[in-house]
């Protein structure tokens, strides 16, 4: 029914080989970052958002579901991890686990509610649910309202890796990103992913073939929300705080924008998009509210003239799936 990606290429061994080569190149390049002197904080932040955008892309690009509330998983996992680390004094690995579990639980509930409607209604429902959560976090005592949870201890991962050292933290975040990315990649290319794509292309037909499409969509939603939560937990160690901005609808909008710029329904697009948008925010930070205006202009320009996104255009040109 929906035609977000107009050229669907078959999964062939060659395509898989290409993708793995690009993935290997990406992993090596990112692994070399600490040697180049690029500010690691910037790259770590971008990696967290890249994973978040990839999780979002799993829903829109392969399930045809545009979630306008993905910030709720980012923020929820952030608050859960931050609370576990700071108040309960748990170790980093357990802190991450608590955050991911929180996001997973949230995605079960919100997924069950939001997949009851399709298309445009799904987007409005996820947006409304995230706004509901925003108000809850605004009033709940443990989030400390407008102040957020600050000064979160980073600690030793598995008792060995000192996360207070930027280089160590960088490789931990990179490992988390690559792991999450591979999980999404594996999901897309599994039989489950194929069914998901068929639902995106023609849901009534998938139903007539005997697939319980609601269950597939729910599983995809939970997977997406959980991985987004994992990105949120990692971000806690990078930013050392958890605040309301991570739950706000503007954040959900940024996630959409990153994926749109990189290419909806492409494998590497969300990563490129996240780096582009985070870099843009970094360089334009002095322009105040004009950043919002520029983001709006990018939205409009992408939708009107550049719907395939950066990676989508490249893939289209070379007739490869990337």
């Amino acid at each position: 029914m929906s035609a977000l990606t107009d050229d669907t290429l078959p999964v062939t061994p060659r395509a898989m080989r290409d993708e793995m080569m690009v993935f290997a190149a990406m992993a090596v390049l990112l692994g070399l970052v600490p040697l180049t002197g690029i500010y690691p904080f910037f790259v770590m932040q971008a990696l967290c958002f890249a994973l978040l955008a990839c999780a979002f892309n799993l829903l829109i690009g392969y399930g045809g579901l545009l979630s306008f509330g993905h910030a709720m998983f980012l923020g929820t996992a952030g608050y859960c991890s931050a609370h576990a680390l700071k108040v309960w004094g748990l170790s980093p690995e357990l802190g991450i686990l608590v955050g991911v579990a929180g996001a997973a639980a949230l995605s079960v509930v919100t997924g069950f509610i939001s997949i009851r409607r399709q298309g445009i209604y799904f987007s409005m429902i996820t947006l409304a649910l995230s706004q509901l959560l925003y108000f809850i976090y605004l009033q709940a005592p443990f989030t400390h309202g407008e102040d957020g949870i600050q000064g979160i201890p980073q600690g030793y991962l598995f008792g060995i890796f000192n996360l207070a050292k930027p280089t160590v933290l960088y490789y931990v975040v990179l490992a988390g990103f690559l792991g999450g990315f591979l999980l999404i990649y594996r999901t897309i290319n599994s039989p489950f992913g194929e069914v998901l794509k068929s639902i995106r292309e023609n849901e009534p037909r998938a139903i007539s073939l005997g697939y319980k499409t609601d269950q597939y969509k729910l599983v995809a939603f939970i997977l997406s929300g959980t991985i987004a939560g994992f990105a949120g937990s990692l971000k806690v160690f990078v930013a050392q705080n958890a605040s309301l901005t991570d739950v706000h609808w503007t954040m959900s909008g940024e996630i959409v924008l990153m994926t749109l710029v990189g290419g909806l329904g492409t494998i590497f697009g969300p990563v490129v998009g996240a780096f582009v948008i985070i870099a843009m925010q970094q360089y334009l930070a002095g322009f105040g509210q004009w950043v919002t205006v520029i983001q709006g202009v990018i939205f409009v320009a992408c939708v009107l003239t550049f719907r395939r996104g950066i990676i989508g255009e490249i893939a289209h040109y070379f007739r490869r799936s990337l």
Binding site: S123, T292, G296
Partner: peptide
């Protein structure tokens, strides 16, 4: 339909910004 949502979201950001 989703593109309409995205486009008008962009317009909203521009106007409000």
């Amino acid at each position: 339909h989703l593109y309409g949502l995205l486009l008008t979201f962009g317009i909203a950001l521009i106007v409000q910004g």
